[in-house]
Write a protein that binds this DNA or RNA. Structure first.
Lengths: 203, 203
DNA sequence: ACCTGAACACCGTTCAAGT
DNA sequence: ACCTGAACACCGTTCAAGT
């Protein structure tokens, strides 16, 4: 979850412990109740007073943002360590969707947060709930590489830009969160739209 | 907004007037503030007491639902009267996306409501905010026809089912609501995914 | 320094009094 | 029948008192 910003003074031992307990409690609460999770409930789960929750996270939104950033960091790590080394660039693209989808499937809270602030905040970064600006930057950089590799292999439509991608991930969040069980079908059709076309259009 | 359910006794003149004022005020409030719109504000805009708002709509959610159903009714009418008579079935498909997208673009409230409850509620119908069950039924029926016409013309992938469509409309809501200005690009790529393919896959 | 939880503020909802 | 708006309930946030 973003190791406590580089220049920050280390927390007192009990404070550091509490911070982690709050994050765990919040993840559980958001995963279960989505944006309806209550601060008092999070405090209770964490075994601390509400005041302590607010000491570490000034608002409910900032807590939600911490959750999103944790998940986002996992996605970035996955792209870096798994997808960019996948020898098949097309398969890497497919896996990027499947990874996001199944993460959202496991964590209702995350999917709800992402889809409710999907674009403006999430894409621009630094919004009230979105990922951190640096995370967005890295996401764009990594996506550029994913797409560049796909272009080099000639497997995607020639006019495809990296900037085309974020809306599709956001849309996936929306669909998964909506409880559409067969979201893989959505992924398949979108992938077909991204694919290089052998010939001219029919019809 | 669904003319007041068939068997309902007619409202007293002033009540009927108030009901309309509340609906107008609510549309304006939701369009401006999305789900953050406040009931007191809606009452003030309508020039009535809060109690009156609650007399006509038992909860804030039911008011939101009335908004969604109003918009949904417009979409159904558009499909029935414009798209199903469009001589070009492919063009009809494209227009269905463009129509939804631009409606959502004009009404932030609608887009936010649709994307926040996109599927489970909206698709199943009768959810807390979704369209009415009958509307969902009609939507499915109309979509079947749109897709059937497209199949007859051979312009869409042979395995495309009408049930594949709703997630794409929901996803569009999510993207538009997120402030992605170039949502037409999304539509174009999805359409390419839906299109009939002339030959086998490359790669 | 950090923690606690009662108190406060805000907004959705109710209901006694009015016409 | 329907309207009004003060009062209530709930939950996010603050802060005085504690360790």
């Amino acid at each position: 979850m973003l190791p406590p910003a580089a220049g920050a003074k280390p927390l007192r031992a009990d404070a550091a412990r509490n911070r982690l307990k709050v994050l765990d409690a919040a993840r559980a609460a958001f995963a279960q109740d989505g944006r309806d999770a209550q601060m008092d409930d999070i405090a209770r789960r964490a075994g601390v007073g509400v005041g302590t929750v607010y000491r570490h996270f000034p608002t409910k939104e900032s807590l939600a943002q911490a959750m999103v950033q944790q998940r986002f960091a996992q996605i970035l790590a996955f792209i870096r360590e798994e997808l960019l080394v996948d020898p098949d660039p097309w398969n890497a693209l497919r896996r990027s969707f499947e990874f996001c989808g199944s993460m959202q499937e496991r964590d209702r809270g995350y999917a709800e947060l992402v889809s409710s602030i999907a674009g403006s905040a999430a894409l621009v970064g630094g919004g009230p709930i979105g990922p951190a600006a640096e995370q967005v930057e890295e996401m764009l950089a990594l996506t550029e590489q994913l797409i560049a590799r796909a272009h080099a292999a000639g497997v995607v439509r020639p006019d495809l830009a990296a900037s085309d991608m974020p809306p599709f991930y956001a849309a996936l969040a929306s669909i998964v969160q909506a409880g559409v069980v067969d979201w893989h079908r959505y992924v398949e059709i979108v992938l077909d739209g991204l694919r290089a076309r052998p010939a001219g259009r029919p019809g």
